[in-house]
């Protein structure tokens, strides 16, 4: 028998959370120090921090919703741990439900048997670990490989990096078209993306025409939050 919200599980989670914050603070402090040595303006560093924080709010709330979703089955502390370290809901939810199904459990119910709980916990952990293991063993050689692939031509290196970004963006833009066979409602993601792009365009105009340079770092989070808000009436209208 396991109590999915037991103090012990909260302690295990708290240790991991403190570790993640400590690692982030360590890297942040070193990077800020290096930024100073490189002569990057303090205002740039400050704006990077504040715009990154603002940008993170909406996705972080979505992750919190993931914790709430999983908590019905696994309690609060374990999903909290999994989604704060390494995890993503797109992985954790299938991992938990697949194992629950394999164990013959009903996915909507809270796991009460300790062995079932630990089986799910191990699958959620082991299923996501190869990425970080690869980073530990091979990051240096991956970097060398990319360096070799990009070559020494500075102009080509810049195009190479832009192409890499565009490759990633194209996959997620393509994803917008996945539901359009479902009728008008399937076009909602495209409309939301277009609203977001239009808001970004307006921000660009304000930056250029009105010389609102401060907006540069905040244009993406503002456009994203604006489009998310707009998606509420858009969905009501198109569904």
């Amino acid at each position: 028998m396991v109590h999915v919200n037991s103090p012990f599980l909260y302690v295990v989670t708290a240790v991991m959370i403190v570790f993640v914050i400590a690692q982030s603070a360590f890297f942040l402090a070193r990077a800020v120090k290096r930024a100073r040595q490189l002569g990057i303006a303090r205002t740039t560093v400050r704006k990077t921090i504040s715009s990154s924080a603002l940008f993170t709010v909406a996705p972080a709330i979505a992750i919190l919703l993931g914790v709430i979703t999983l908590s019905k089955m696994l309690g609060l502390p374990w999903p909290w741990l999994r989604l704060s370290v390494l995890g993503a809901l797109t992985y954790e939810l299938p991992a938990a439900t697949t194992t629950a199904n394999a164990l013959g459990l009903t996915t909507g119910e809270t796991v009460a048997n300790a062995t079932d709980f630990t089986a799910i916990a191990w699958v959620m952990t082991l299923g996501i670990i190869p990425g970080i293991v690869l980073v530990f063993f091979r990051l240096r050689s991956i970097e060398k490989g990319v360096d070799k692939l990009a070559g020494k031509d500075e102009r080509w290196r810049k195009i190479f990096m832009d192409s890499l970004f565009l490759g990633m963006i194209s996959a997620f833009i393509g994803l917008l078209f996945a539901d359009i066979r479902k009728g008008l409602a399937g076009y909602i993601p495209i409309v939301v993306a277009l609203i977001s792009a239009a808001l970004m365009g307006v921000c660009g105009l304000l930056i250029k025409r009105c010389k609102w340079a401060w907006l540069e770092q905040y244009a993406l989070p503002i456009s994203m939050l604006g489009a998310m808000a707009a998606s509420i009436p858009v969905t009501a209208w198109m569904s």
Partner: peptide, 26 residues
């Protein structure tokens, strides 16, 4: 709907910046 549309809202804005910079590659 707002949380269902995080990815479109994110990649719409991010996409337009990178596509506008590199339309031929995009």
């Amino acid at each position: 709907p707002a949380f269902d549309n995080i990815l479109p809202a994110l990649f719409g804005a991010l996409g337009v910046v990178y596509i506008a910079k590199n339309p031929k590659i995009a």
